[in-house]
Design a protein around this nucleic acid. Sequence first.
DNA 1: TGAAGACTCCCTCGCGTGGC
DNA 2: GCCACGCGAGGGAGTCTTCA
Length: 363
Amino acid sequence: MCGSPAGIRTPVAGSKASRKSHHLFNKTLTEPLLEEATIAPQSTFSVIGHVFHQGNKQEHYRSLLSVQNPNQYYVITEEDIDKLFLEFEAKGVTLAHKRSVEYIITMFLKEATKETQGKYIFTMKDLKDYLNTLRSTYSVSFYRKNITYLKKLFRIAGIELAESLKAPTEFNVDSTIVTVDDINQFIQLVDSLHISNHFEDQKRDQFVTAMLLMAVSGMRVSELERVPLKEIDFENRRIYLKTYQTKTRQTRVTFFTQEVQELLEDYIRTYNPNMNQPLATIPQMQRPFRRKSSLRNQKLRPKHMRKFFAQEWDRRNGNATIKKLLMGHSIRYDINALHYSHHTVDELQESYEKIFGDLRFLR
DNA sequence: TGAAGACTCCCTCGCGTGGC
DNA sequence: GCCACGCGAGGGAGTCTTCA
């Protein structure tokens, strides 16, 4: 193992350092291969040939190494890393996702390998130690992520260990239960901050309206951010989400209650916001939870509004297929929804009214 | 305040299995 | 051999926290 267990979080988490290390993914391999490279104090390597072998890539790289036991080493080249990221670029993944994979790969290369002129070399023991450290330091889900992208890199590099890497299956599910009372208490808490001048009028109204809109429509925070106010059909209480506005790239329609309709209209009348902008952005929704300790220490977050929608729909015995359609859940394996249970927008809204028509929070 | 880091959520894919 | 089904792995976007 090349790094100390405690060293994983700090050096890589240092954003400046990790940003600098991104040169890994842009550099092309031009240097002579492994000339007089040293891997570890006890192991000396030197180039013994530059002939490209058509067979196993790892054998080829090992053939370039003059070591006592070449088979115990695994080699990752910058070209392998470039190939990994070429795939992401070709797919057009988001910058955030690319960065998160870069972070995982950089962490591995830095902590578990030795770099010599554009080559990253490690042993099985290095890998085992690294994985043990990861497993004991981070959550299961983050450990799983690491396994996923290391496997991908190993496959590209022709490292057979890829097929031996298995991640634990368990993962954490946020099973927070959210009721009308929970949301009422939350609003009271916000109002207490408002009264004590910790919340400006507009901020309070924007925050509460946005939270309730998500609670009654089932929209995600990111979806709320992508819908300009002018695209909300206030009169009919409908929101048509386009492909670029949803997480799943599927269009859908969702609805909101009369109470939220009144809140939205009041907000617009009172503050005259830019109708080309959304009701609230993600930072505007998140910041109060960081800034205000009483909000920070309670259980609800913006994402729980969508959970409330799903849970309250069930508590009121709403139709499961319609819930899927309103929330934008996949119906790929739902034969009923896919082939038989089709609904017009009016029918969906009629069902919505039956279930959520009397839903109110502010009494 | 924005970006990075550390997760969480949930959709899709692929493979194994069992019934016909 | 085909098909339906279930399940776990893979994968990528979303969300929240931390940091400079």
